[in-house]
Every structure is written in structure tokens, then in C-alpha cells.
Amino acid sequence: MLPSYLTMAAILFCIGLYGALVKRNAVIVLLSIELMLNAVNLNLVAFSKYGVVPSLTGQVFALFTITVAAAEAAVGVAVLIALFRARGTVNLDEFDEMRR
């Protein structure tokens, strides 16, 4: 079963990557990043059951990841709100500050 879970995680990760690279709305980009993190979580939990040394550690790590992801989502949305106040948009095409 392990390869099936890993393949599933890879699919999720690649869809998330595509969304993160293509979507213009910053909120959706954040969501796509969450999707990629979830794919990683799936891997962690799958290895915790089917890995060479099965243990609960994988699940603990998944929990940590979820925590950090939650913090990231909160800060990300806060930043977006601040950005929107300053620029009136969250369309990523409008942001090219890195060019300067």
C-alpha cells in the first residue's frame, strides 16, 4: 500500500505546486501551499505505518507540521489583509517590488 499513498501525496504536491505557481489570487496561492504541506503530512503518516521502522514519530511530526502550517496561514492572511489595505488588491501580478 505504501506506493499508493506516496503516489497520492505526489499528485497532491504537484497540483499544489501548479496552483502556487499559476494562481493570481494570493489567497489561493496560500491554499495551494497548504495543499503541498498536506501532501507532506500524508507521506509522514504513511511512513509512520508502513516505513522500515514503524512508529508514532511520523504522526507527531505531522502534528508539528499542522501547527506550523496553521501559524503560517494565520500570518499569511494577516499579511494579505495589510497588503490589500496598502495596495487595494491581492492580485500577485501587481506586485513586482522585487524588480527594484
Binding site: 505546486l17 502556487a20 500577485l92 506586485f95 513586482d96 527594484r100
Partner: peptide
């Protein structure tokens, strides 16, 4: 390509 857009940079990195 160096147009300051994070997504282009991300794509390049990928």
C-alpha cells in the same frame, strides 16, 4: 523574466 514577480521566480527555481 526578471520582472519582479514571485511566481516567475518560483517557476524558474522549480
Amino acid at each position: 523574466m526578471n520582472n519582479g514577480q514571485a511566481q516567475v521566480y518560483g517557476l524558474t527555481a522549480v
